[in-house]
């Protein structure tokens, strides 16, 4: 079976600082793939490379068998145009640490914006499915609220519904619960758990080791731009092999 995400020696630098120093990994379809590691280890940067929010400097990155951000012709690489990159991103949903909801739109408008604008759905149809999606994340009552009127957990659930509205084949989560009050974390993880049970392919950068252990199918531990350790989440978290992994886990668990 084709990998949903395939990274081959992915390098990324910001100016002189090398953030990713050769990442190789594969995410299978319908898999929940967790990335953990200390801050500054490059895990968020890697996630942002998957939908080309960051350009990689070396290596290859494929989503569902297609090269991300470039076209390979002969043995030359051609940068994709703005429009072509946008088309690639339609199938990849992303959820941000800071929600990034559109503050001038209500919850339901946030969710229906992209289907109407990008996929050309009719407003009536998009609104119907947007309401259904908000219902699914438990916010059927809050459709007409503006983001400023919602709690952090509610905002993040709207953000998940917004990403799902594009019917993506892959969902990226960039520390989705890190900006939330501890008691609001659960409601967001519940939605993600449901999503995983429905068979969505998910790449999750997280500090929630409990979630990774319970829901994750694979886990990688990243540090300083490289994958230090990978495997089944329960094995890695309960029985880490590397010193670096051990010392990190002893601090967060």
């Amino acid at each position: 079976m084709n990998a949903m995400v395939k990274a081959e020696a992915v390098h990324k630098s910001f100016g002189p600082v090398e953030v990713l120093k050769g990442i190789d990994l594969e995410v299978a379809p319908r898999e929940v793939f967790c990335i953990v590691g200390p801050s500054g280890s490059g895990k968020s940067t890697f996630l942002r490379c998957i939908n080309h929010l960051e350009k990689i400097n070396a290596g290859r990155l494929y989503v569902d068998g297609t090269l991300v951000g470039y076209r390979e012709h002969g043995n030359k690489l051609y940068e994709l145009r703005d429009r072509e990159v946008a088309a690639q991103r339609r199938d990849i949903g992303m959820v941000f640490q800071r929600f990034n909801l559109f503050p001038h739109m209500t919850a339901v408008e946030n969710v229906m914006e992209a289907p109407v604008l990008v996929k050309g759905e009719t407003k009536a149809k998009a609104q119907k499915s947007a309401r259904a999606l908000l219902d699914r994340v438990g916010l059927g009552e809050k459709c007409d609220s503006y983001p400023a009127q919602l709690s952090g957990g509610q905002q993040q659930r709207v953000a998940i519904a917004r990403a799902l509205a594009m019917e993506p084949k892959l969902m990226l989560f960039d520390e989705p619960t890190s900006a939330l009050d501890p008691e609001l974390v659960g409601e967001v993880l519940d939605v993600m758990r449901d999503l995983a049970q429905d068979g969505m392919t998910m790449v999750v950068v997280t500090h929630e080791m409990g979630f990774a252990r319970e829901v994750g199918d694979s886990l990688v531990f990243m540090d300083d731009g490289v994958v230090v350790e990978s495997g089944n989440p329960r094995d890695v978290l309960n029985n880490p092999q590397h010193e670096r992994t051990k010392s990190f886990l002893s601090k967060v668990l």
């Binding site: 939908n51 929010l53 703005d82 429009r83 946008a86 088309a87 991103r89 339609r90 990849i92 949903g93 992303m94 941000f96 800071r98 990034n100 909801l101 559109f102 914006e113 992209a114 604008l117 990008v118 953000a159 917004r162 990403a163 594009m166």
Partner: peptide, 19 residues
């Protein structure tokens, strides 16, 4: 983050600017 969110949803730069 607003631009990143709209890009991640597959909007073009012009759509992001306008909407």
């Amino acid at each position: 983050g607003q631009t990143e969110a709209s890009q991640a949803l597959g909007m073009t730069n012009a759509q992001n600017m306008r909407r």
